[in-house]
Design a protein around this nucleic acid. Structure first.
Lengths: 164, 164
DNA sequence: CGTGCTTCTGTACGATTGTACATGTACACA
DNA sequence: TGTGTACATGTACAATCGTACAGAAGCACG
């Protein structure tokens, strides 16, 4: 699962093969087909693994946001930190398109946004929290396509408006 | 190009093959390899074709927005109309992830957002226009993963804040 | 009516894929 | 120690892929 998760980031969901995963994990080819019925099973498990990692990160976000500091600024900083590593945005977006075509993946794809809305629930109206989550998804795909993500002041300004 | 564009929406960039495109277009297999050096060439041409279609739609948006009616409401209505057809969001997002991995596709992926910022330039500050474009990208991927897109009033409310 | 040339198409090939499965191995229990 | 059961692996196979390419077909021009 870990190997598959790494590889989804590197070669994408499309490039994921049993052999590639087996080689990365250092196990024989038979192992990947023994533990996972099909390649879809394998990719789903890998995506679930990635989702659990981001869920753990969400706890860190919650802690930072609950610290009481300026909400938009904190959020902008957290998001900038998240995007600092280009490799993060790619698998997340890959999950979105995969979920668009495979309904069984949708709960996974919703996890991040729903989790963020829950965390923000303590500090903002539900509608505003949802708008922020949606906006940050936009920031994610925006960063995918540009050399530089949105600058932090602009991020903070937009978040301030959405949370007002 | 048209056939390939359709197929990207149906089977995704990953499922695109020479044979599939040829069958859909009603041409022999050799034709796709004759006119396009490689499969990457073919997919790029198809994505460029799709981008040109959305560029044409952007003109309609510009007309609606220039009509002087309530900006956030008009924008929310246009976006809701765009998302009414589920098949539209998928290829667009597929382009985003493809561009994330293939830099030569990035100009294509930026076209929609940049175009929207240009159109909004007449009615809003540049920073606000950019924030709106980013937010609407978020709305796009959000719709990909839910059965129902964001409801129009919420959309209008968020856009109002971003444009204030 | 040739004839040279561009346009087009059917077929073939090597490579890679997902998956099945027979075989081997470890290990718990009697 | 013997043995059965669950675990693990190497190999094989059919299918599908991108691409190359020989040759057919159309066509302008002398």
């Amino acid at each position: 699962m870990e190997a598959a998760g790494q590889l989804i980031g590197e070669v994408g969901m499309a490039g994921l093969t049993h052999r590639l995963v087996a080689a990365r994990a250092g196990v024989p080819l038979g192992a990947t087909t023994y533990y996972f019925t099909s390649l879809d099973d394998l990719s789903e498990a890998a995506l679930r693994h990635l989702t659990e990692e981001t869920a753990a990160e969400l706890d860190a976000w919650a802690a930072a946001l609950d610290s009481g500091a300026d909400l938009p600024a904190t959020l902008a900083g957290l998001m900038a930190g998240y995007l600092a590593d280009r490799g993060r945005a790619l698998p997340e977006t890959e999950l979105y398109v995969a979920a668009g075509r495979r309904p069984e993946l949708r709960p996974l794809a919703r996890a991040w946004g729903d989790g963020l809305v829950r965390v923000l629930g303590a500090h903002a109206e539900p509608a505003a929290a949802r708008a922020v989550a949606v906006f940050l998804d936009g920031v994610l795909v925006h960063a995918l396509v540009r050399d530089e993500p949105i600058d932090q002041p602009a991020l903070r300004a937009a978040l301030t408006k959405l949370l007002s």
